[in-house]
Design a protein around this nucleic acid. Sequence first.
DNA 1: GTCTATAAATGGATAGAC
DNA 2: GTCTATCCATTTATAGAC
Lengths: 200, 200
Amino acid sequence: MNNRENMLNVALDMFSKRGYKAVSVRDICGKLKLKESALYYHFKNKQALLDALYQRILDLIESMRSSFDQAFAMITSVGMEEMKMVSVSFLKDYFCNSHVSKFISMLTIERLSDAKAYRIYRKLVYDMPLEQCDKVFKLMVQKRIVKAAGQENYSKIYCSIIFNAYNEHVFGKTASTRAVEKAVAQVNQEIEAFYKLIRI
Amino acid sequence: MNNRENMLNVALDMFSKRGYKAVSVRDICGKLKLKESALYYHFKNKQALLDALYQRILDLIESMRSSFDQAFAMITSVGMEEMKMVSVSFLKDYFCNSHVSKFISMLTIERLSDAKAYRIYRKLVYDMPLEQCDKVFKLMVQKRIVKAAGQENYSKIYCSIIFNAYNEHVFGKTASTRAVEKAVAQVNQEIEAFYKLIRI
DNA sequence: GTCTATAAATGGATAGAC
DNA sequence: GTCTATCCATTTATAGAC
């Protein structure tokens, strides 16, 4: 029953659907069945609520980076089945993670008018995924699993496929399993097609 | 000096940056150097302004569909250079078109809480592009330019590449030529890589 | 078609009691 | 930590003059 936590969770949920500016402190407190003054006890003002959420994402990104690195250290080879498994996990555990998904929605709105949100969005959606993919494809080229020619484009195309499936089927939907399954099916199919094109 | 037009243009510009709810009628009229009552002469209320914009996009989509169809009717063959040209034109004239680009931004925000915006967004960003691409790839398979195996995934992957380049470099930026050039460079490179993978 | 003036609602934020 | 009560700015929208 930590209300500070609740406030952050409810705020994230509402900001992710309508955007920071469009959600009032009254709205948030209404859902929490608390008065505004209760919220102002925990946060200096409305902006501080948003800043606290930004800090949470940054922490989350770092913790994901280290789990990624740990998992990668144990990889020895990547065939088609492994690649499909990794892709689906990437989609499900990263993009579709209920927290991450809400952050992406919120940042999608805020980045248009907030430079800080823009930087965090890029980190979460482009820089981090691309960085990890590059490591995997480099390994695959080294092991002579995929063609060396055109390797500098693999990560971008690969990430495009996954992010696009997320965007098309899951983005903005309230954690619908149906939507996730659709995205997974699309990723499985397209990643298989892509793998067949690049393998030696 | 048609003020109704100006109102729509300014509203679109502001909605695309901050979202419908976060922009006040005062903001819009401030930029127009008009009083709110002037706006309420042309539009029943704030919502009517948004509805008029939605109608504009729907009209724009239809007009684009017919230009696309006309251009397609004249195509006889598609080699690598043609494919790159079409891709760049797709990116520049469609997604980066200053009007379309603002609509995409606005709809990106509104679709999260507005079912109508969601439908229009899908039409503009997924359905229309995919529909056109399918026609081109079918022709390419028929002419034995690209491999038949995996053809059902070509359009999705192709559109992912282009939309992702748009999203990464252009989305949300105020019509920066620099940003467009970056996206064009990325598309050129990735589409070439993709073409080499699928050609016979 | 646009202006001034103003109503009515909503939103951010604080003081002080419990 | 939360509540009641309240303040003041912002916002949507309208009436009536020009």
